[in-house]
């Protein structure tokens, strides 16, 4: 019994140390963000007082209201498009038989592994020829395509586990595939669908390379891209940058805090079952 207790204490110590390692850099950002102007900057220290001025300054000087609006618009569009198309395709892959099904699914699956570098260079020139670089479309459409690989895979797995009997019952009632999908299968799958939405929202919000390449107008910059430019202009103003970083990360971190179980299980299962 004594050994067990000592073992427990030891386990907790290890977990506390490594949780601290994960959190301390982030805590440092928070502290730095509320550090008044006169304090030394860049290090990890308790600020002499609580100063929220950095947030105001970063928000105004960095035009973050514009960037956050862009990010929100792009993220919502990508999530909505991905959800609709993934639901449709996932249903077909899980519940219908058609020639070429496995080949098509395998191609989509390969998309899960593709790094953005594999397609982004010609894509930029294609979209430039089409005249849609430097528009929201150049952010929304490619990121939707990128999210679809995961979305279709996720929805197919979800729909495959849907009880066969319920579907058959619906079919005996004369429901069409379309009705069956939206009236019978989708409603009980809402939890899984919303997990997918969370993950896609997170990836889209945090994306950096695609906005970097696709847009040049300042008013189209997403929050991470805006932060990158802001950092270039205020390279050693660590408190200001920290405040800006908190602003950019906050929406997803808030979602994570409230829905962390869904985030973790989604990521762990989504990737593991691949």
């Amino acid at each position: 019994m004594r050994i067990r207790r000592r073992e427990m204490a030891f386990n907790y110590t290890v977990l506390i140390i490594f949780s601290a390692i994960a959190v301390i850099p982030l805590l440092g950002v928070l502290l730095s963000a509320v550090t008044p102007k006169g304090d030394p900057q860049g290090g990890f220290q308790l600020p002499s007082g609580l100063d929220l001025g950095n947030f105001v300054e970063a928000w105004n000087r960095g035009h973050f209201s514009t960037y956050m609006t862009s990010s929100a618009l792009v993220t919502i569009s990508v999530v909505v498009l991905t959800t609709i198309m993934s639901t449709l395709a996932g249903f077909a892959f899980a519940r219908m038989d058609f020639p070429g099904k496995n080949a098509l699914f395998f191609m989509l699956l390969a998309g899960l592994l593709l790094p953005a570098e594999a397609f982004i260079i010609p894509l930029y020139y294609n979209l430039r020829s089409a005249g849609i670089t430097d528009t929201y479309w150049a952010l929304i459409l490619p990121q939707t395509a990128q999210s679809l690989a995961f979305g279709v895979f996720w929805m197919r797995n979800q729909f495959r586990t849907f009880p066969h009997e319920i579907m058959e019952a619906g079919r005996l009632d004369g429901a069409s595939d379309w009705k069956l999908l939206w009236k019978v299968i989708v409603p009980p799958s809402i939890p899984a669908i919303s997990t997918m939405c969370l993950l896609v929202a997170m990836w889209t919000w945090n994306e950096f390379l695609i906005p970097l390449i696709m847009v040049s107008s300042e008013n189209l910059r997403t929050a991470p891209l805006g932060l990158a430019f802001f950092q270039g202009q205020h390279i050693t103003d660590y408190s200001l940058l920290a405040a800006a970083g908190v602003i950019v990360a906050l929406p997803i971190v808030l979602l994570y805090i409230f829905l962390q179980r869904r985030f973790i299980s989604g990521m762990v299962n989504g990737i593991s079952s691949r």
Binding site: V29, S32, Q231, A242, Y256
Partner: peptide, 22 residues
Amino acid sequence: FRTLLFLPQVIASVVVATTWVA
């Protein structure tokens, strides 16, 4: 512990990078 250990995964890499620059 799981929530704390996993937290860095959900933060934009740009934010992570600026954090580590400091």
